[in-house]
């Protein structure tokens, strides 16, 4: 018993060390404004001026990020789910080709995609646009969602859909009526990750926007960082606000997150 308690204590200590930067972000966000970081270890006189400033200056960018992330989830899942089903249930020599293509896609650096999309977007007028960023962010959402959903759908017995087919339902109807509801958990996992990928995107925000109009919050933080930081509390308050989705997802959807980390990598 003593031994197990000791393990828990050590575990808590490890966690404190690992999460210290997250705590420090929160602490620094509650300090008075200024270009130095004289904060003590505890925010004894917390002030919300950093948050006020962050919301004034970055509020719109947070909304932009939210819209882009939501759009990425919808588009990624709409494209990935039928494909994942096909890759798990249809018998075809193309299945292994598809899987190999997804594997290879993971090796393509984002900067390659940004290079090409920039020149294409420039021509078709998608630079500085929300749809343009949604499409670009699908490059992380779609392959991941296919892998996660497929690894779940492999466990579906074919008889499940066949039963509905006997009753006259077409392949697509059977997919919508039977496969989708059963796959709810893996859809949630894939959706959560697509959201996080898109919300965290910095590279496409940096390269595919050239002027002020559309600016995700990651880009807002980057511009704050500039060369010399003027108001650390506003920077850290924006960082905290940008970390909220990750924190909420981790607390609300713990089991899905670990499943996603493992499923996406191994399968």
């Amino acid at each position: 018993m003593m031994r197990r308690t000791a393990y828990t204590v050590i575990g808590v200590l490890i966690l404190c060390v690992m999460l210290f930067p997250v705590y420090w972000m929160l602490n620094a966000s509650l300090q008075p404004s200024g270009n130095t970081l004289t904060a003590g270890f505890l925010p004894l006189n917390p002030t919300f001026s950093g948050y006020k400033r962050a919301l004034d200056e970055q509020g719109g960018n947070l909304v932009t990020s939210m819209i882009i992330a939501a759009g990425t989830v919808v588009l990624s899942l709409a494209i990935a789910t039928p494909c994942a089903y096909a890759l798990s249930q249809f018998r075809s020599r193309w299945v292994s080709v598809g899987l190999l293509a997804i594997l290879i896609s993971q090796m393509i650096p984002g900067i390659v995609i940004a290079n090409a999309l920039y020149t294409a977007y420039e021509r078709i007028g998608l630079l500085n646009s929300i749809p343009g960023l949604i499409v670009a962010n699908c490059s992380s959402g779609i392959p991941f969602a296919i892998l996660i959903l497929r690894s779940f759908m492999l466990s579906l017995p074919p008889s499940l859909v066949e039963a509905a087919r006997v009753d006259g339902a077409g392949l697509f109807r059977a997919f919508v009526a039977i496969v989708l509801p059963i796959s709810k958990n893996s859809l949630i996992t894939a959706g959560l990750f697509s959201f996080l990928f898109s919300w965290s995107d910095f590279l496409f925000a940096l390269t595919l926007t050239t002027k002020g109009g559309v600016r995700p919050v990651t880009l807002g933080i980057y511009q704050y960082l500039g060369t010399q930081v003027q108001n650390w509390n506003a920077v850290m308050a924006t960082a905290v606000l940008s970390a909220v989705p990750a924190i909420v997802l981790l607390i609300a959807a713990q089991k899905y997150i670990a499943a996603g980390a493992i499923g996406g990598a191994v399968k």
Partner: peptide
Amino acid sequence: SLLLLPWLLPLIVSSATWRSI
């Protein structure tokens, strides 16, 4: 599972935090 937090944070958020540290 709480240990996963650093991995889930947007990279630019981690960068900003470490810049301050």
